[in-house]
Simulated assay, not measured.
Amino acid sequence: MKDDAEPVILDDPGKLKALSHPLRRRILHRLRQHGPATSTTIGEALGVNTGTASYHLRQLEKYGFIEEIAERSTGRERWWRRAESPRDLRMPTPDMLAPEDRPVLAELLRQGHAEDMEMFGKLPAAYERNPEWARLSRGYGHMTEEDLAAFFEDYIRLLHQYCRRGEDAPPDARPVHIRLFTLPADED
């Protein structure tokens, strides 16, 4: 995969709506962590019936987030996997969307924040168990808007340099959650 790929802005309202549904987010996380699955196995794992899982899988397929594994599917049993996605997929700024689509972006960001807060709550125990895998840093500094934009792009380049897709990772690689956020400190 090319590391110099241009960022892709997720500014399609349909895709934003597809990603803002809580069950669809759980399905995507499940496929990312555990690999291909059927609607039956997804339903069992997530505690929903097969019909509900199947509907949401089709919605994710409609917007290109997952794909059927045709060679593995037989009859009514369809196997699904996450689709190849851009390495640099970014959220749109609110002004990139029509006013009626902005609440969907806000909901998607709210859900992502809730997921991140749940993950953040696991940090102390993870750090105690595996300090070599649970790394953390806190920073504070003064930057111009241009400095911050350059810092962010350098961060993305580092992700591309060191992160591999699961199928390309060496046997001793582990999946790692990585987050970066910046907030103006003078708006507290």
Rank of each mutant, 00 (worst) to 15 (best):
K2D: 14
D3W: 03
D3R: 13
D3V: 05
A5I: 13
I9W: 01
D11E: 03
D11T: 10
D12I: 05
P13I: 15
K15A: 13
A18I: 14
L23D: 15
L23N: 14
R26F: 02
I27T: 02
H29Y: 02
R30K: 06
H34I: 05
P36S: 13
A37Y: 04
A37V: 03
T38Y: 00
S39T: 02
S39Q: 06
S39L: 01
I42E: 02
G43I: 00
N49K: 10
T50P: 00
S54C: 07
H56M: 01
L57N: 05
Q59P: 03
E61I: 01
K62F: 03
Y63F: 15
E67C: 12
I69Y: 00
I69M: 07
A70L: 15
T74R: 06
R78G: 00
W79K: 05
M91R: 07
M96H: 00
M96E: 12
A98C: 08
P99R: 09
E100C: 12
P103N: 14
V104S: 06
A106H: 10
H113T: 08
D116E: 11
M117D: 05
P124D: 10
P124T: 02
Y127F: 08
S137E: 06
R138M: 08
Y140F: 14
H142A: 09
M143L: 12
M143W: 11
M143I: 07
T144W: 05
T144Y: 07
T144R: 09
E146Y: 01
F151P: 03
L159M: 13
H160I: 04
Y162L: 02
G166Q: 08
D168L: 11
A169T: 09
P171Y: 10
D172S: 11
A173C: 07
A173K: 10
R179Q: 09
A185S: 11
